[in-house]
Design a protein around this nucleic acid. Sequence first.
DNA 1: TTTTCATGATACCTTTTATGCATCAGAAAC
DNA 2: GTTTCTGATGCATAAAAGGTATCATGAAAA
Lengths: 296, 296
Amino acid sequence: MKIGLRHIRYFLVLAEDLNFRRASEHLHISQPALTRTIQHLEAELHVTLFDRSQNFVRLTDAGRAFREGGQRVLNGVEATIDLTRRVSIGEAGALRVGYTDFAIADALPELLKQFHQRHPGITVRPHHGVTTAQLQQLRDDKLDIGFVTGPVRQPGFRSRVVQTDRPICIVPEGHRLASRSSVELAELADEDFVHGPTEAWAHFYDYLFPHCRKAGFQPRIVQEAFNSVGILGLVSCGMGITILTESIYDFATGGLVPLPISDIDDVMVTEAVWASENLRLPTQHFVDFLEQSDNH
Amino acid sequence: MKIGLRHIRYFLVLAEDLNFRRASEHLHISQPALTRTIQHLEAELHVTLFDRSQNFVRLTDAGRAFREGGQRVLNGVEATIDLTRRVSIGEAGALRVGYTDFAIADALPELLKQFHQRHPGITVRPHHGVTTAQLQQLRDDKLDIGFVTGPVRQPGFRSRVVQTDRPICIVPEGHRLASRSSVELAELADEDFVHGPTEAWAHFYDYLFPHCRKAGFQPRIVQEAFNSVGILGLVSCGMGITILTESIYDFATGGLVPLPISDIDDVMVTEAVWASENLRLPTQHFVDFLEQSDNH
DNA sequence: TTTTCATGATACCTTTTATGCATCAGAAAC
DNA sequence: GTTTCTGATGCATAAAAGGTATCATGAAAA
């Protein structure tokens, strides 16, 4: 016969009462049932847990050790059951959130903070990644929500704009354009550009390159960095200029000059994306939260 | 019906295999028995733990939460059973050790270190206390072993000498005796003394006062401190002189002068004391350890 | 398509385990 | 003494767990 939670429950009550009859009453069972359960427990452990006589019952040292461990076990069971129930109704759980440099620099922190206030039991697990990587992770069910550079128009996904950015040109101090208050795209045609890897940053280029094309040039990318911090670093080293967003520029450490681009009218959007069906409960809560956020 | 460890064990195996038939084989039970156990578990929790179809079985989010908690619970049960067994054979446990200032200043640290090497599963819980307090705690079963100022000749206790100290006189720098290389007791007759409270330090006075009486005086105690550090502090402040042991003097911070007392021949003993019967296993191990330490 | 195969669920019966009742034996209180 | 506690034991019953046979369903094979 194996030890079960029943043995531990009975044992703990007896260890509290130190009296078989009273303990059996607290347990709503007969005294012989309790006696035998404790006997079985001791036989299974090969350990005497109680010193008993007709006058008194008291714990042995081993009994005290078992009481501590047994109490922890029962607490663990209760906590596990409670957590499981909470997860099943979406009150607890984990939400895997992807984000780009653009998202984390502006809308995301406040959004996650508000979501946590509304659903404190749901743990947000942030995963940094470029748009293309996030979309793939969403397809592979590695991510619940992505914050990506939009617009996303893929079958099987829904999305919602959470942030818009005006692109700005960023040049190092001392650059020939550094003293200007704004620039036109065409003026950048002969500049060296620092940007991210072509495939990874595809969605950003989808937004930027058409504007350049209209202005009559294709940006000459001379250096690639793996994220926006790296890009700004290379720009401040004088390796070239770049076009990013204002919120990204706010993270720069110095040595850089931001220039509005006068002839770009539209904005770059950052969207929350999620699968259109079979949503996990935390994901559903986040989607609901996003839609409520919009409506006021 | 209540959730038991059986439900958790079966659940964990199924969560691993994700196949009722294979899991039932691993558990050495029939497939219907497993199916029903999982059904009962889910009914008791009011939670669906597995998404099942004829093609596949997979965990729900709640199932994943239950798996983590359930694994922890089983590990806890196993650890508790193991610890309980180890305590029952004396391989693990706690030993409550009392000690005086004299004991901790000399023999005790090395003794406890060696004991820990021999019985790494036994946790030593040190309790500082004067001899009288320790003897009372031993009687009240609040302590397993006392390290006290001897000799102890009380019924119901056994003891063993672990340390001997020559008393020395300690005077502040600049004292009229500070430049001497040794003193005789009688020379201290008119000095002010700093010592511990009379009742608490009874055992120490039992050793010291007869010597003074033989030298023809009763020490005039003008200041009482609660421990030897306090005594040395008051001495270095010039409140008086004291008589303690060399090992205690080693802890002094400065401003003090030690003087051998030429006409005290016998030593002050520190003994380990323990009850003579009904020893807990860790206590028995410590006693055995002490006797082995003596024999080589 | 039909057939075959593997899956999990159900029905029915057996075995095992847990429980209750009645009672015993020993120590303490009266 | 007698009574009154204590925990332990024997026996019968109830509840839980398990096994065998079988079903329904969907995927893969023929």
